[in-house]
Nucleic acid binder design. Structure first.
Lengths: 242, 242
DNA sequence: TGTAAAGACTTTGTCAGACATAGTTTTTCC
DNA sequence: GGAAAAACTATGTCTGACAAAGTCTTTACA
């Protein structure tokens, strides 16, 4: 490394001066400049202090925030690693989900329109290649299911193929995060039965409808699938809270 | 206040001792114990230091994280205010939005089904009081609009009333965060014309349909409104990106 | 008396230095 | 050569100090 000095900013001796906004920006600048990828280690805090010209606590506040957003992971002794992409073009928003009686159902209620819309868009605008992939994933899912194995990874891949076909990565991200929140809530209080098992047989006709371009049929099937999950979710909630 | 001392935790003299997880928990405990609601002010940092028994930087890291998640808002001189509910049962989820060519359109594409579904649910399950509120907000919006004033705050309140009527705060949160992301992207590159101005006249019939319980009509109008915004968004994107 | 400017106070923002703790790497010893 | 011990690294926390931007109170003036 040819001796840093990329941010010629140590103008202020002590006290404060710059807007706090600059810390994330400087950090992202360093990451881009250094070409750091997911999995790479960031420089240690004290080096960041030296190179970016901010105080350690200030930098730590940003790093801690990033950790809570899932951008980096931090460990004593080890260091700070990038675990998600971040760049000047990345925008991160955080949600808080209240975990109470019907929060399980609520997550599914929000997921419902997103899944259905993603199916509609995918049916309309998937490329032939994407339809092939969806078909293959559906076949894989049915095979695993009928073999009596754990079908959840295959289910995940199937739905991901649909989300990809929308051409809008936001769908995938949102639904993914909702599911993550769902499982965070779900795993804790209850044992973990295979929620949604009965919906698997409906996945084959769903795939067929998408491939055939039958948007309404696809949307209807997607709705049925998620409604079944909703119903199961509701039953579990009621058993537990009431 | 009868002399705090609720958290008898100053066992460690210096250095560290407890898991960092304890800071959010202690903070939430204090909020619940004090009965703080959205809009209320938290005690100043130095008082939190005294009452919770953690160092100031540690507490600040949590507060900063909460700020980035939209749980509190912080201002010099003023203080820290609660701007969203938080409790022991709150779960936090982060989303990444990559800001590129058509990210504007993509945010609206995701928002679309959420808005429509929230309108459907609200139409089905709003209480009479909530319908009254929606009606009032619509009246307010139309008045402001016809007076030629800035209708955006009123528009915001109107849509919030709908989201409230769903009984599912997640809708409100998701849509809110999507809009926030949208504006973060939007404000930067372009000047800020009044996007969605032409949709305002449609809000009155939308309110009427919701109040009358006509779900399909309400959903149709909601779809029209957001499609108009989508079209405008697309035009702006195209003008700008080529 | 009412209002606006001036000052005092409050509260967050930042920095600096110190030590604790938990991983990681190197060294040592059998 | 392998396992235990020591040295090292990097994050976690605490304390103290000052800066800056609000907020509130007081004062001065019309």
């Amino acid at each position: 490394m040819p001796e840093n000095a990329q941010q010629p900013k140590p103008e202020a001796a002590s006290g404060s001066a710059r807007e706090p906004r600059d810390v994330p920006r400087a950090l992202i600048g360093l990451i881009e400049q250094e070409g750091l990828k997911v999995g790479d280690r960031l420089p240690p805090e004290l080096e960041l202090v030296r190179r970016l010209g901010f105080g350690r606590s200030t930098i730590r506040e940003t790093l801690k925030t990033w950790e809570s957003m899932g951008v980096v992971s931090r460990n004593k002794g080890a260091g700070t690693r990038l675990i998600a992409e971040i760049s000047t073009n990345t925008l991160r928003v955080a949600l808080t989900i209240k975990h109470e009686a019907d929060s399980l159902l609520r997550t599914q209620q929000v997921r419902r329109p997103l899944e259905i819309e993603s199916v509609r868009i995918a049916t309309r605008s998937a490329t032939p290649e994407q339809r092939l992939i969806i078909n293959a994933r559906a076949a894989e899912l049915m095979a695993v299911y009928e073999a009596g194995e754990d079908w959840r990874p295959a289910d995940h891949r199937f739905h991901n193929a649909i989300h990809d076909a929308t051409g809008n990565p936001l769908f995938s991200q949102f639904i993914e995060q909702i599911q993550k929140a769902f499982h965070d809530i779900y795993d804790a209080p209850f044992g973990k039965p295979h929620l949604g098992q009965d919906t698997i047989p409906l996945h084959r006709p769903l795939a067929d409808a998408i491939i055939a371009g039958d948007e309404d049929k696809a949307a209807e099937l997607a709705g049925m699938i998620i409604d079944m999950v909703c119903a199961e979710t509701q039953k579990i909630s009621e058993e537990h809270d009431g």
